[in-house]
């Protein structure tokens, strides 16, 4: 036998370890926050008591729980979006933020927010933000798709994505310039990225939309595996390339847009998590890689969320200040390793 090989149990073991990490980090997000609440009180509140103080109950149930759930779902969604893009574009450096898809979403959101002004209050307003994010994300993906017909070098395609991102952020700046102070303020806050923007009332909508799209992504594992060989081989294996590519881009656009609308543009998670997950389960087969990516995304987002509240009473660090610290070393590692 050869020295290197897959152990069938490795993927399963990795998935269990990631699951344990998610539980620990989720717990961490409930027990730690800007306000010091004794662990006993948190447990009491979670088991239906009042924890001794009304304000503690409000913090744990009204803020920490939805924030942890949002991080859990957003992380999975962004990571899976990244994986779908990496396989679709046959490019290990593809991801929602680097290809300008998040920026496209931001532009859509900016149009809605700055045009409507004010804060993201009502559910109706929320849906228009979501639609804006969706339209922006899809617009960028369509542009990338068009370019990918002519550009076969993955690095060039990446550069096109970055350029499209620049154009979108320039449009955002122009919109900001012509908008009201109030509109700009809420847009800037949104743009910092945060898992705390989804309250208990909005959480079910967010969870339902995102989980539905995640489930649909799982239906694509077979064509995704075929695409690992490139489009020409995939077509020879009976995959309808055009339809599959459109579906995958739609799914990844929806996932990016849903998270971006609720949490702001969050960088790096979509790009790095598929690689971390691939190293963990040591296979590219999507039947293992897709769930592992979703779970690793959840774990990393929860970790970022936990770090963001670490300053305690000093305030909350924006998530986008944390993700690059984890993300950049991983990207550099990928670039160096890929000769």
């Amino acid at each position: 036998m050869t020295t290197e090989g897959v152990s069938p149990s490795r993927a399963a073991a990795a998935i269990w370890i990631i699951a344990a990490a998610i539980i620990l980090l989720f717990g961490g997000c409930l027990f730690f926050g800007s306000v010091d609440i004794p662990a006993g009180a948190v447990i009491d509140i979670l088991t239906g008591g009042d924890g001794g103080k009304r304000s503690w109950e409000v913090i744990v149930v009204g803020a920490r729980l939805p924030m942890a759930c949002t991080a859990l779902i957003s992380g999975a969604a962004l990571a899976v979006a990244g994986l779908l893009m990496q396989t679709t574009f046959d490019n290990p450096l593809a991801g929602p933020s680097i290809l300008g898809v998040s920026t496209g979403s931001s532009l859509g959101v900016a149009v809605v927010m700055l045009a409507l002004g004010g804060s993201v209050g009502t559910i109706g307003h929320y849906f228009s933000v979501l639609l804006g994010a969706m339209a922006g994300a899809m617009a960028v993906l369509v542009v990338l798709l068009l370019f990918s017909r002519f550009i076969h070098s993955s690095v060039m395609l990446l550069i096109v994505g970055i350029m499209v991102g620049y154009l979108a952020s320039s449009a955002v700046s122009l919109l900001n310039f012509f908008s009201t102070q109030e509109g700009v303020h809420s847009f800037v806050i949104w743009g910092l990225g945060s898992f705390s923007g989804v309250n208990l009332e909005r959480l079910p909508v967010f969870a339902a939309v995102t989980l539905a799209v995640l489930l649909l992504s799982f239906l694509m594992v077979k064509p995704l595996d075929a695409l690992l060989l490139g489009e020409r081989y995939a077509a020879n294996l009976g995959v309808d390339i055009r339809a599959t590519r459109n579906r995958l881009l739609l799914l990844s656009g929806l996932l990016t847009a849903a998270v971006t609308a609720f949490c702001g543009p969050i960088g790096f998670i979509g790009l790095i998590v598929p690689h971390v997950a691939r190293m963990a389960v040591n296979t590219s087969r999507h039947i293992y890689l897709l769930p592992a990516t979703a779970m690793t995304g959840s774990a990393i987002a929860l970790f970022c969320s936990l770090i963001s509240v670490m300053p305690g009473s000093w305030g909350v660090i924006p998530v986008n200040a944390i993700t690059p610290i984890i993300g950049v070393p991983v990207i550099l590692y990928i670039i160096l390793k890929r000769k």
Binding site: D225, Y233, T283
Partner: peptide, 30 residues
Amino acid sequence: LVYTDRTHAGHLTAAELVALGRQPYTGFFG
């Protein structure tokens, strides 16, 4: 079909890659 160009499917084992050739015969999840 067999082409000349390299593929990026490095994280598959030889058997997993060959198994992709069964896709025309396998069910929805392969």
